[in-house]
Amino acid sequence: MDVPSARGEVTEILIARLTAGERAPLDDLAATTTAALAASDDVLTDDDLQLALFLMYELHYGGLDGVADTWEWDPRLLAVRERIEREFEAALRRAVSQPRATRDVSEALFALVTDDDGPSLSAFVERDATAEQVREILACRTIYTLKEADPHSWAIPRLHGRAKSALVEIQADEYGGGRPERLHATIFAAALRGAGLDDRYGAYADHVPATVYTSMNLMSLFGLHRRLRGAIVGHLAAYEMTSSLPCRAYATGLRRLGFGDDVTDYFDEHVEADAVHEQLAARDLAGSLADDEPEIANDILFGAAACLAIDGRLWGGLRERFEVGESALRKPLP
């Protein structure tokens, strides 16, 4: 992706160093990051820190244009990333109550998502949203959905037996089941084009609010740390378990607004796919993992609760802006 614009001192220095070539000095980045963490009101909504973390994580995915690939494993950069991650995880643990299963983990997961009943963006799209608001939502989804499923795939080599088999079964479907044109990220790219939006990764990197990066970084944090393999599994379960009904509402809203099948296809696909994935993720994946590794059962539930909390803030935040007639973006779409 193109390197986005800086959002503060940390990303200003980070971007300058990353684009200066391999092994540029990083001392000032570490000091600035430490100061920014100390000064931040809320790491979970901090534009500068969340974008910085996103850019460092992006080196492990598609990379950044004009940035040397060797930065991915530069120990000095990893040390800066760890400082942000430590505060990020601490803030998450303060913001999200740790759930505990009274009987079994899959039953607890179903209870968690059932009890999560805040105002939903999908219901707003179904009945009230304008076409421009829908385009803003799609732009906000690009950061994750153009690489849909990737952060959860980090967990594959860290699981074993039934849990691994279940994760691969879900991910194979996410990746089109052998049909490249049915890759969910590819279907979403078609939806973007159908809605008149740019489908290149990062095209709206300067538009989206910090909470979009927080949501993406949550998945990367859980996915890239083997220690948090339970949390990435719980995240996937919660994500899949809160998808099929909202996607039906999205599809209905998009049809109401006159968007074509090329745009609704993505949401229609997820109504059916995620009704399957929900069962596989809660029972075969999360349930099996909790049986096999009971010591990480609480991590599974924490990951699920964090998914609901962080994505709830993101999408609920968009709805709040829309309800008062404002844009959810930092600058208007072209």
Partner: peptide
């Protein structure tokens, strides 16, 4: 539990 945080 934190104040209800809505799912998408």
């Amino acid at each position: 539990a934190p104040s209800t945080l809505n799912a998408e």
